[in-house]
Simulated scan of single mutants.
Amino acid sequence: MGKRAVPQRRRRGRSRRGRGARLLLPVLALIVVSLGAGAALAHYNGEEQADNAAPPTAPPSPRATTAKPVTPPPKPPPKPAPEPSPKKPPKKTVVPRSGPGTFTAAQAAGAPTGTGGALRRYRVQVEDGVDVSAREAAAEIQRILAHPRGWAAHGRGRFQLVSGEADFVIRIATPATADKLCLENGLDTHGELNCETTAGVVVNLRRWMLGSPTFAGAPAEYRHLIINHEVGHEIGIRDHLGCPGPGRPAPVMMQQIKGLNGCRSNAYPYDEDGIYITGPVVS
């Protein structure tokens, strides 16, 4: 019996140690798990804090701290604005006082103008040595006589520009030559006026180029008055007319260069409604 009891005690001793080890293992495992979870939690919190923290500021580069600031080159001063060139005064029209007394005829012709009255053929001449083209002057006079407010448009005659035989001549002459031609017919024009003679119309070059100081219009418009007035005498209107009333248009047969007496300057025999512009007879 003693031999059997010894082994039984050994088995009980081994059994106790086995139970103790078995009890200790779960405790150790729990400790290990707790330690691992704590490390993991610490590692996670560290990462989260690292993620939320502001990124570290990079240290300035040596070049940025030692280089001198770059100063842009100074801008060149603005160029001064060019001074405006002084305006040239308008070229003064110089009208020669006299000429040779010889004339060049315009080599030009046209169709008759007008619808009633006798046909009157005219020729245009310009004194030699002056700055007026005979051909251009003839074309301008042709347009004046064909104007819708002129004589021909209202049955007071028909006119035709010709270069040969003519019923009358329209001469553009220097003041001295115009005075001479007009005086041959007893008319004193004082170097300023135009006239109508037995040979035709004499136009003072000064009036043709400069117009009149009493006329409110350009020289080109005043030329209408010259031709209409003198051709009016040529077709038989002998009398000069006066102003019909203050503010009214002056008759074309009024000597407007001598004063308007309250009228408005006017270069046409008829108004825009086709009514003849008349006034009291003065001479």
Results as ranks from 00 to 15, higher is better:
V126R: 04
D128T: 14
G129D: 06
V130L: 08
D131R: 15
S133C: 05
A138G: 08
E140K: 14
I141N: 07
I144M: 01
I144F: 01
I144C: 02
L145C: 08
L145P: 05
H147S: 09
H147K: 06
G150C: 13
G150D: 09
A152T: 13
H154M: 09
H154A: 04
G155Q: 10
G155N: 02
G155P: 13
G155D: 04
R156C: 13
R156K: 12
R158H: 00
F159H: 06
Q160I: 00
Q160H: 05
L161A: 06
G164Q: 10
V169E: 13
I172A: 08
A176R: 08
A178Y: 00
D179P: 08
D179K: 00
K180L: 13
E184G: 10
G186P: 06
G186T: 04
D188R: 13
H190A: 14
H190K: 15
E192A: 14
N194H: 11
C195Y: 03
T198G: 15
V201R: 07
V202P: 02
R207K: 15
R207A: 12
L210K: 08
T214V: 07
A218L: 09
A218W: 09
P219C: 01
P219V: 04
P219E: 01
A220K: 09
E221Y: 04
R223A: 01
